[in-house]
């Protein structure tokens, strides 16, 4: 299987601030977030629950507008979901169309972009193979396990050939074994396509295991507590990588940051 090599996109956050207004009191959620994600890089964003991780994700995908500051994708300001970006959300039961088969779910965005039928079929098939869903083309999402459904969501994201993939707690609702499989799948996808990958998670182990760099958010309003490089080599391995002394150190460091600020 050969994949057309894609280059990842570069993402830049400049003094991004978000304040929700309404019902009298303003809620200041994010405070001057600065960050640069290089093409092809894997960045994890961690923080205690409720800190504003999902808000940050919504901002940088263009689903919600920033209050002040700027988000640039390859130098262009993000005001609505950009062409080169694809999203995988936590709620797989709600993010897939239950009335469409696996194949049609993956195909729908391509169809609406008026991509020719031949190419559509080719892209759908290669995405299905990439995520290991062979033989499930004509089943419906609700006939699949949670992990399989999330694979469909990933395949759908990949079929649109994004240059940056953004995932919001994608493995939070699947069982432990499936979670490890999906983590390795995401690493493989990044390797195969070289796309920039952002992962929002509350799981510190997962953040470290997958990423080149971890962005730690803490506080109210949330700000960047630290940007921690992960010097673990590739390929990563669920047993060896996690047993590596550096893995433990990094994990401990992040834990301190998150707990210490409470």
């Amino acid at each position: 299987m050969t994949h057309p090599m894609r280059t990842g996109a570069r993402l830049e956050l400049k003094d991004v601030t978000k304040t929700y207004t309404g019902h009298g009191e303003d809620k200041h959620v994010l405070d001057r977030i600065n960050c640069i994600v290089e093409p092809g890089e894997f960045l994890s964003i961690v923080g205690p629950s409720g800190v504003g991780k999902t808000t940050l994700l919504r901002l940088l995908t263009g689903l919600t507008p920033v209050t002040t500051g700027e988000i640039l994708l390859d130098g262009k300001p993000v005001t609505s979901p950009p062409e080169d970006l694809a999203i995988v959300l936590q709620e797989y039961t709600r993010s897939l169309m239950p009335w469409l088969t696996v194949e049609k779910n993956i195909e729908l965005p391509l169809k609406l972009k008026k991509i020719a039928k031949e190419e559509r079929r080719e892209r759908v098939q290669s995405a299905i193979i990439e995520v290991g869903l062979e033989g499930n083309d004509s089943r419906y999402p609700w006939q699949l396990s949670g992990g399989m459904q999330q694979r469909v969501a990933i395949a759908r994201a990949l079929a649109s050939r994004p240059r940056i993939l953004v995932m919001d707690e994608p493995f939070a609702s699947v069982d432990a074994q499936t979670r490890l499989d999906l983590e390795d799948l995401v690493l493989k996808v990044r390797d195969d396509f070289g796309i920039t990958t952002l992962l929002v998670t509350h799981d510190m182990d997962e953040a470290v295991y997958l990423a080149d760099r971890v962005l730690v958010l803490t506080g109210k309003p949330a700000h960047v507590a630290a940007e921690i490089a992960v010097p673990l080599g590739y390929p990563r391995n669920q047993v060896e990588t996690r047993a590596h002394p550096d893995f433990g150190h990094l994990r401990g460091e992040i834990y301190q940051l998150i707990r210490g600020k409470r």
Binding site: T61, L63, S80, P81, A86, I87, L89, P109, L112
Partner: peptide, 9 residues
């Protein structure tokens, strides 16, 4: 969630 998906695509 479905609305977010449609917008993101």
């Amino acid at each position: 969630v479905l609305m977010d998906v449609s917008r993101s695509f």
